[in-house]
Design a protein around this nucleic acid. Structure first.
Lengths: 343, 343
DNA sequence: GTGAAAGCGCTAACAA
DNA sequence: TTGTTAGCGCTTTCAC
């Protein structure tokens, strides 16, 4: 069932039927009713391709998801973010098209998306400090919004981010309050904007308290489970090992647990660890100290909001870019002691 | 830069240019060279919408991802599956469009996808025992492939699945070999096909050894962390509690760990647990017993293969449906004792 | 308030 | 081997 068939059935022109369906004012109320009824009855769905060819808008948003080159893995938070974004798109009548790439900088991917005309806008994931994609997209004039930020990019653009710096500042402060003086930082790759900011928060918290920053206690690598395991194992062997760890998400927590276990220590007793995990409400009665930089549901909400920002930008091309900063939750569990593992 | 511009530039008709670009045989080699060079030079990209309007094929595959209604969460394995599928699509020139729905049975979603003509095929995720979507898709004539199976659906269709039954049979057998007689099963919702099969494997293993199947030791719910925690806590309070647990993935392992910890027991010492987790190669020197029903990389490979099957089906509409069964890996770690926790 | 006709960018008969 | 033409299904001037 296409427009032609439907209008023939109604004894109207395609024009009128199209207008009736798209809410144009010049069509009479009676006609609109008839058309709507018929469309419903025959469950008419306008062909997206034809529509977008005619209008020039594709009613689709592209997400370019970077895949870790070495480890070929997808960051699990994308799932939740995408779910939120998908909701917003569905509500606004947009489709979501996904493109997974090894090297997210592949200029071609973005240029092609634009040239092939199958998206009206793009969500940029996992930005680096000076991410070239932003200038690129501005250059080719494709609307976009960034999940995160690229701190070294001076021009304004749409972004939505979690306040990574303050989250890590507070978390470090919390460990310092417990009396810890040697705190291991397990961070992601610090070319990534979020990791850079997290480190800044950690460093600033230490400096504020006059604690020396020890490079031996700071690691920055791709967030694999094995990295977490190895890093903790190695730090444990230092002459003066950390008494606490601050673990950047999403480094899988299980590697940390195991390393601590291997060292013959008990988490939350011999050693303090602040990490991230989802749905840990009952942890509040446990002995861990979880840091929620972003819960699953808040990531979802972020997806929703960023999608809305982008859709808004597409609808109002002239509008000034919007930004949104989420303050990360820091939820603290009951520790086995007030001063766990601190010397 | 569109076909018209490009052909004008070359002093050729749109037809010739189109043919040259699409590898039709009748165009002369010299012309083809010229056209290719020009297309490259001006980085011409045919407009996907126009192309698919003309051809009737949209060169896109739809993935309809169910979201847990109660918990609004996305199964993290989708990320890896999608990554694999994305690879295959990219290689074949297809786009991937994602649609996240609360109720995956929403017939409308599928019908609309077809009617709106923006996908040439669909991947069905998370099938239930008698999943109505299969009949629906066959009815509307939209090519599809299922990630998993719907055992109660008799007609042939494309699917790719992990051998869930044998995996759980072997895992249960392994625990029985250790001497366990009371094995708790934490399963997903058994309306889901994979969970049903897993249970069947568990039950069959017990029956083969003449061990009574105790309903009190079998749980089936949505795979949240809290469910895992609660279920284990409750089973622990039984007069004759399990000495081992078999945990269906992706029930977050952390809930299980905590419940066992709360009960004052030590995993791999007082109690045996077979669960699933990724990238646990070093676990082989640990005290856990991991069951790999599907590693992250094998999920990825599954995505790749299922995508290929679907693309093949789209290209050869008459072809008989293809199926593929992956045998799950069962990797066993070193236990602290040969007979951990068994009575 | 409604309709005829052109055109979005491409492909695919049909001619030449 | 190349070009002419019609049309994919829709929107959108423009005319009535």
């Amino acid at each position: 069932m296409n427009l032609k068939d439907l209008s023939a059935l109604l004894g109207l022109s395609q024009t009128t039927v199209s207008r009736a369906l798209n809410g144009y004012p010049e069509v009479s109320e009676a006609t609109r009713q008839r058309v709507a009824a018929a469309a419903e009855k025959y469950s008419y769905r306008p062909n997206t391709r034809a529509k977008s060819l005619a209008t020039g808008r594709s009613m689709a948003i592209g997400h370019v998801i970077p895949i870790s080159a070495q480890h070929e893995m997808v960051n699990p938070v994308f799932g939740d973010f995408i779910a939120g974004a998908g909701e917003a798109y569905a509500a606004a009548g947009y489709d979501m098209v996904l493109s997974l790439v090894q090297d997210s900088h592949e200029e071609r991917v973005y240029r092609d998306m634009f040239a092939k005309g199958n998206v009206d806008g793009i969500v940029v994931h996992a930005p680096e400090m000076h991410d070239p994609r932003i200038a690129l997209l501005q250059d080719i004039g494709l609307p976009f919004a960034v999940h995160g930020r690229a701190s070294d990019v001076p021009t304004p653009y749409n972004w939505l981010d979690v306040n990574n710096k303050s989250a890590f500042q507070r978390a470090t402060g919390f460990l310092l309050d417990l009396g810890h003086k040697r705190i291991g930082l397990l961070n992601g790759l610090e070319t990534m904007d979020f990791a850079h900011r997290r480190r800044a928060g950690y460093v600033e918290a230490l400096q504020t308290r006059g604690i020396a920053v020890d490079k031996a206690l700071m690691r920055s690598e791709e967030m694999t489970e094995n990295y977490g395991y190895q890093a903790v194992c190695e730090m444990m062997k230092l002459p003066d090992p950390p008494t606490a760890y601050l673990v950047s998400s999403m480094i899988p927590a299980i590697g940390i647990r195991r390393a601590i276990h291997d060292a013959g220590l008990k988490m939350g007793q011999d050693i303090s660890v602040i990490t991230h995990d989802d749905d840990l409400s009952y942890l509040r009665n446990g002995d861990d100290v979880p840091l929620f930089t972003a819960t699953r549901s808040s990531v979802r909400e972020a997806g929703r909001q960023l999608a809305r920002i982008l859709i808004d930008q597409i609808s109002n091309p002239g509008k000034v870019p919007q930004t949104k900063l989420f303050e990360a939750e820091l939820t603290v569990g009951r520790s086995t002691g007030p001063n766990v593992g601190a010397r």
